[in-house]
Amino acid sequence: MICCKECIELLHDYLEGELNPEIEASLEDHFADCPPCIAFVNTYKSTTRLCKDTLKSNDIPDAVKSRLKDFVDKNKNT
C-alpha cells in the first residue's frame, strides 16, 4: 500500500492527470482510507486557487497607465 509521503510527492502529477492509471488507482485507494490526505489534497488545491485569485488582480493603476501612454507616445515619435 502506498503511504502518505508517496501520495503527497505525486500530488502535482495526480492533479495534472499525468500519472499512469495503475499509480493513480493506488493513490485513490489510499485517499479512500485516509481523511488527512483528503484534507491535504483539498487544501493544496485551495491554496493554488486562493493565491491565484489574490495575485491575479494587479491591474495597472490609471495614473501609471497614463504615464505609460505618454512614454509610448514620446518614444514612437522619436
Binding site: C3, C4, K5, E6, A39, F40, T43
Partner: peptide
Amino acid sequence: GFQQEKIQ
C-alpha cells in the same frame, strides 16, 4: 511514511 501532523 504517514503524516505526522493533524491536517485540518
